[in-house]
Amino acid sequence: MAEDAEHPVEACLDYPELLARMENDQDLVRDLLRIFKDEFPRGVQSLREAIASGDLKKIETTGHTMKGMAAMLAFGRVTQLCKQIEMLGRQRIGEGLAELVAGLEHETRLAVAALESSCVEPPQ
């Protein structure tokens, strides 16, 4: 993945921190990434539905859960965006949510790509 001046890789993923928390278990990190790739898009879908129906309470809880998932994988930017979404939901502010979710999707793609390149499967 290419360097991006606006979104540096460090802010996107703190791989050393993640590896330390997983006690250097790269297999575990890969398992978690698989779970994340499965679960996280459902969260994004859920956010979109909540925006469409104006369910700001759901924005808050879904944002909270997604924030936990992103933090678990040390996805710094994604965590930040989820936190902003959760806050808007908590304050019952609908404005700007759609933009944030679009940004979240983008950042998630970057973070996942960064992690995939960091924990390459060992050669068989």
Partner: peptide
């Protein structure tokens, strides 16, 4: 209920 959280916890 969050598998991402529970799974590594269990491993540790």
């Amino acid at each position: 209920d969050d598998l991402l959280s529970r799974y590594p916890l269990q491993r540790t």
